[in-house]
Design a protein around this nucleic acid. Structure first.
Lengths: 254, 254
DNA sequence: AATGTAGTATTGTATTACTATTCTGCCTGT
DNA sequence: ACAGGCAGAATAGTAATACAATACTACATT
């Protein structure tokens, strides 16, 4: 029995403006995405047993090799667990690797609800406020210069993608300046929030809103520049809440 | 390249016979652990190219199927990336899924340095202070009762394991009371790894230190009981810093 | 020298076969 | 009739082989 060759039509939407694109979509990544979205999106809820290897093989039209490597990847992200004769079952949500870029992008593609976004905002408040306070103490002059450049980049961005890129780069630089490697792990989370917030309404279009956003970021940068940890905390809180409001407001508006 | 049939399968049979005593350990997980520890521990630093499939196959004495599923798992944790003809290269540290349970535990198995422990403590400060503040607002009476019971459990614990269990349960309950499911997931993970890594350094032996620790926890619980978010923050900070000091002191002492 | 092209080494995918695990149900002995 | 064990079946785990796709190397052609 021969597997039919499929053409490279992936047709997958861009998950995020800043997500790096691999030159080639491998078969495995397509299957990983397919099942991952099925899990996050509720087709396979926690506790459910996935179809057997044979069934999934038929569904995605791939060999068992590809299918099993895909399942192994999902297993590594703590989405599923497999046992012989038992089957492959979806783990409870609490086990999932929340910070994983793929898991986050699948949330995005299946449409995050407002409670999800609020939870993310709370985590950002916790981590990024600590991160920015540490950055205020530990940052180098070069890092401060990068932050300022990012703010300027936001101010002059010609389109939403450029704006989001500068925005994300700003947060990444702050995380790096904190000197704590774990802080950088939440950039994927920030990425998702930005992508959600900017999907339709981008502050690039509205010059007034854009000025507000840019100024909030600039206040963070200058607080870090002044090595004022408390001011940096306060300014970062405003930035995060504003991002949440934009994403949430967009959802309730429709 | 080719595996010797006779001796190969014989060796495998013997190996699996000894493995059968620990039924949950699959071949793949051993390879994942082996390479994962090699990466975290510095044998394969970021940017380095891993040995080829064939070489790794020989090193771990497994089939290519098992090896490749193991590599797929590491790839899913963003530790490595593979491309045809290029090889499998270790990604920069910033890409790693540091919050992954396996990656965290590999850090401890390869001997965490004090900077790593400090980073974890900073993460706990960020997350658990926010968590406990939310818990002070949102907690139910039942949850408060559980917290108090945990503190009592710490006070009367007969051994290290019981003490650690009550300690862990306390922090988990606080995280749940925050109403943020992801907060519970992340803090639970970090706390669990820390607890299992340092079960030795519990203050059970030293009754004076034990009283101090228990009282600090009790202050957290009572601040939550009084719905005083700021007091809860302050008390939790003390708890976390004390835990860090004990772990760090233990490292430098030996 | 620039460019193309064949060779080659490495990962990606497919296929088949077998092993290990454990659930289901029959079957045997009392 | 019932308990216990034994055989079969279903499913994931592992092995082995073959070929495809990719991209580096080196040589050949212009």
């Amino acid at each position: 029995m021969e597997m039919k060759r499929r053409s490279g039509s992936t047709g997958r939407a861009v998950a995020s403006a800043t997500r790096r694109q691999l030159p080639v979509r491998t078969l495995q990544s397509q299957v990983v995405d397919g099942i991952g979205i099925g899990i996050i999106g509720g087709e396979f809820p926690p506790g459910a047993t996935l179809p057997s290897d044979a069934a999934l093989q038929e569904r995605f039209e791939v060999s068992r090799t590809v299918l099993r490597e895909a399942l192994k990847a999902l297993s590594a992200k703590n989405l599923i667990t497999s046992r012989a004769r038992i089957g492959t079952v979806v783990l409870p949500r609490r086990e999932w690797s929340l910070f994983d870029p793929d898991v986050l992008s699948w949330h995005f593609e299946t449409g995050p609800d407002i409670a999800f976004l609020r939870s993310l905002a709370e985590i950002r408040i916790g981590l990024e406020l600590e991160s920015v306070a540490l950055a205020a103490e530990r940052r180098s002059d070069a890092q401060l210069a990068v932050m300022r450049a990012c703010v300027d980049g936001m101010a002059v961005a010609a389109n939403t993608a450029d704006f989001a890129r500068s925005d994300l780069e700003f947060h990444r630089t702050v995380a790096e300046a904190s000197g704590n490697p774990f802080m950088a792990s939440i950039t994927g989370l920030v990425d998702l929030v930005l992508a959600t917030a900017f999907t339709i309404s981008s502050p690039v279009d509205d010059s007034e809103a854009r000025d507000v956003t840019v100024n909030h970021h600039r206040r963070v940068a200058e607080s870090i520049g002044a090595r004022d940890a408390e001011a940096a905390r306060a300014a970062m809180r405003v930035v995060i809440m504003e991002g949440f409001d934009r994403a949430a407001g967009r959802m309730t508006a429709e």
